[in-house]
Design a protein around this nucleic acid. Structure first.
Lengths: 330, 330
DNA sequence: ATGAAAGCGCTAACAA
DNA sequence: TTGTTAGCGCTTTCAT
């Protein structure tokens, strides 16, 4: 079976290619009768236009690129899900690529996007990526770039991210309100800017309120480490009355320890986390968390992309608000 | 900034387009000196070939399509992750589309794949999809189609899926071996063929072994329902000594109840599940499960795709073996 | 070793 | 209302 083209349809009907092309687009110039004949045959032959030819001819592609460190991650998933949904609704397709947090692969993926002449790029850069220049320069090839989540800090570009400091402050406020006095606060990798922002905000909130709560600050780089750290403190004489988890990763580690030690939440120990909202609902009682919602962020990013495509050449930094979701864990 | 093309490079260097094209491909005909000049300039100008033009010219696309009900799902994610990885390694890009289990959207997505002239399609059809014909016919347009997970039952086509019955049998064997006598077995939607297969296999294993274990069979269609069912039986006089969960969804519901009732696993109650392997590791002790590994299935599917692309026109049904992963929950 | 030319499938300006 | 033509960027056959 050979593919159907405008040419073939035109030959069968004894029309010119352009007439067929116009008829299929419901162009007003073409007579109703001809349109009907063309559309009928196209349907019969199961004609689908060749996107490559259209893209080439029109220098447009109806494709967005999306680069993330990993697909297999609840946050990215929900972000992707939102962007895919919107893309389809607007007649676009999505090319999704994962960098594995490797700047080299990230670069390769970026090239793929360029080669496919995507109309826009959503990208969450890997922490190791130093050189952002090419991404920025990409916009000179009339391609819009929207950075999300982990965004370059000092450059002028389109950014969509969470109110990182806010989330930590909301958590601190809740802890203070609940009159907790001995808090184990587990943060992620010290090098990540997100860790630094959240930690600074978290601490300062206690300081500003002149609160006498004892804060134990720990940094971990995996769920397993979080689990061990939590274990260490929970079996010590000075068992914390509250654990704060900066991320879903730390939360899962901590919850494993609490189950292992048969500590009852919130009576034996309270838990509060910053989370995408999926893991907190797996436990009983559900964990109280400050939401960093990937789906919402995706919608926000897509909105920004649309503006760019519509001709907005300014750069903007959009912030997705943080929201406290009450469970029963504190 | 205007895009760089072969034409531009050729003009700058005073060469013909075809020479530039060959030089960039390291064609033996071209002199070393010319190659050097061309490559240098291409690099300086940051040239990237136009994939649309290449695809159009060569009638090949270096793109695979992938259609799933939802991206935001640990199983699909891990499947996608594997396929994306392999695709990149083989120089392909992936167009990922979600159908939301809606046959109409699935159809639209399928059209997008056709329009983009993907070289191959990975698809997990929605349970509501009745007409598989177009997918099959797609292969007549020299496009390979690989169905995965939820595959059409009676048609001749490329299928990659799990050994559904096996997984249930392995679970039953484990339960029998552990001499459990009062088992609550929670299955998914009765209409799904996967439920039917697993339930039949599970029951028959007990029957075949002449085992006197009391089986309580329940069907649920959400984690919440699983939770409620589990709660009902666990507070009854005849509390089960074991819960079998057919899926991750049921498992998460069950675990919430066990936490709520402060039942200790495995002493108060044992747990065994069929799972993709992510959720079981969130609990302590980790849940013993029979693995249905999306990542492995993705690799398997990709391998099949490669064979098809290499010219294998036979159809085959590949089965990913089930594997017992020991946790401490039974 | 290099160039000229045709053509992939389509759109759109121009002609009739 | 329909057809002719040029051209998007590239590969490839056939000259030279």
């Amino acid at each position: 079976m050979t593919t159907i083209t405008l040419k073939k349809i035109s030959q069968v009907l004894g029309l010119s290619i352009s007439t067929v092309s116009r008829a299929l687009k419901d162009h007003p110039d073409i007579s109703v009768k001809t349109k009907q004949r063309v559309m009928d045959l196209a349907k019969t032959l199961d004609y689908e236009p060749n996107a490559n030819a259209i893209n080439l001819r029109t220098s447009k592609s109806k494709i967005f690129g999306l680069i993330v460190p990993h697909i297999s991650n609840y946050f990215y998933e929900s972000f992707i899900s939102a962007v895919e949904e919107e893309s389809r609704l607007h007649g676009y397709s999505l090319m999704i690529l994962q960098s594995g947090d490797d700047p080299q692969i990230e670069m390769d993926n970026f090239k793929l996007c360029r080669q496919n002449r995507v109309m826009g790029l959503f990208i969450c850069i890997s922490p190791k990526t130093k050189d952002i220049e090419h991404f920025i320069r990409f916009s000179e090839f009339n391609t819009s770039v929207v950075f999300f989540d982990k965004v370059p800090s000092n450059l002028l570009c389109n950014k969509v991210c969470f109110a990182d400091a806010d989330a930590a402050i909301i958590a601190a406020k809740k802890i203070i309100q609940k009159k907790k006095k001995n808090v184990l606060a587990i943060f992620g990798d010290k090098d990540h800017s997100i860790t630094q922002k959240r930690e600074a905000a978290f601490k300062s909130e206690f300081k500003n309120k002149n609160d006498d709560t004892k804060l134990i600050i720990e940094h971990v780089s995996s769920a397993e480490e979080a689990r061990n750290v939590c274990y260490k403190y929970c079996r010590s004489k000075n068992k914390p009355d509250t654990v704060f988890c900066m991320s879903d990763e730390t939360l899962t580690g901590v919850m494993k320890t609490l189950q292992e030690m048969h500590l009852k939440v919130p009576n034996d120990i309270a838990v509060i986390a910053i989370s995408n909202g999926f893991f907190p609902k797996l436990f009983f009682p559900e964990i109280t968390y400050i939401e960093t919602n990937g789906y919402k962020l995706g919608k926000l990013a897509f909105g920004r992309m649309l503006s760019c495509l519509a001709g907005d050449t300014t750069t903007s930094e959009l912030i997705q608000e943080s929201l406290l979701v009450e469970g029963g864990s504190i």
